[in-house]
Computed example of a mutant assay.
Amino acid sequence: MSAVANPATVAECLRVGAGFSQGDRNWIAEQFATLDARLASFHADATELEVSVKDREARGQKVTLECWIAGRQKIVTTSSEEDLHAALNDVRDDLRRRLNDAKTRQEPRHNKHLREEGQPGPGAPSTDDTAEAPAESGVA
């Protein structure tokens, strides 16, 4: 796999939405920094992250992390944890999990388990048996 020229990072791609101020952005970016390794395979200019919170610091607050990567479906993760830091960790970890799942689905050749499971076992019908194909009736 070739390295991405301008890899996505949380610091470069994160926007703060409703419920957060620009002053919150740095500590949230620090808390999300572990996502950088997962985001590095995408171009920074094709990746966006937005974190928002509804009813901040109230019972029933809801943190939402949205991720847009060009050419892929938007991923939305949410948490209703009452502690804001716990909620941010929750959406971060869920996004990492979903990015890993999406990568595994898209590129099974890099997943040893899928590679081994995908091979037909002995006695499985061969796909290159063309000798048994019925002959076409020749009309000239």
Rank of each mutant, 00 (worst) to 15 (best):
Q61I: 05
E136K: 13
C13H: 03
R15C: 05
I75S: 00
E82A: 12
L65I: 04
Q31K: 15
F32C: 05
Q22W: 02
E107K: 01
F32S: 02
S41Q: 11
L39D: 03
F42L: 08
P134H: 10
A29I: 04
I69R: 10
S41G: 12
P7T: 09
G138D: 11
E30Y: 04
I28L: 11
R56H: 05
A70D: 12
K62Y: 01
G60D: 07
I75G: 00
T104H: 01
H85V: 07
A70S: 13
H113N: 06
L99S: 00
T77E: 15
A18C: 02
W68K: 10
W27V: 05
L88R: 04
D94G: 02
D55H: 14
L49A: 07
A135H: 13
V53Q: 09
G118D: 12
D55V: 02
D128C: 00
A70H: 07
K54A: 14
R98K: 15
S21A: 12
F20I: 01
V4R: 05
Q106Y: 00
P122I: 00
A11I: 01
T47K: 07
K103C: 01
P108H: 06
A44L: 02
K112P: 00
E116Y: 03
V51Y: 03
G23D: 14
E136W: 11
V91M: 07
Q31W: 03
Q22S: 13
V10F: 09
L39W: 07
E136V: 11
D90K: 04
A5Q: 11
A102H: 02
L84I: 10
S137E: 15
A131S: 15
H43A: 15
A46S: 11
N89L: 10
G123Y: 06
W27N: 10
A46L: 09
I28A: 08
D55S: 15
G71F: 08
K112S: 13
V63D: 05
H43D: 15
D101A: 12
S137G: 06
A70W: 05
V16M: 06
V16I: 09
T104Y: 01
R92T: 07
A58C: 09
E50Y: 02
P134V: 06
A58P: 00
K112W: 01
D93L: 13
R115K: 11
E116R: 09
L99Q: 00
F42R: 04
L114Y: 01
E12K: 14
A5F: 05
L65G: 11
L114C: 00
N26W: 03
G19R: 04
T78W: 01
T77V: 15
A33M: 05
E50W: 02
A124R: 03
L65S: 09
R92P: 06
G138R: 14
A70G: 08
S79H: 03
E50G: 03
L114W: 06
F32E: 03
P108E: 00
L88C: 13
S2D: 11
P134D: 08
P134C: 01
D94T: 13
T78L: 10
L49E: 07
T64V: 15
P134W: 03
F42K: 03
T9K: 09
H43R: 14
D36M: 04
E48G: 13
V63G: 10
D45N: 14
T78E: 14
A37E: 12
E30F: 06
A8F: 08
G19S: 06
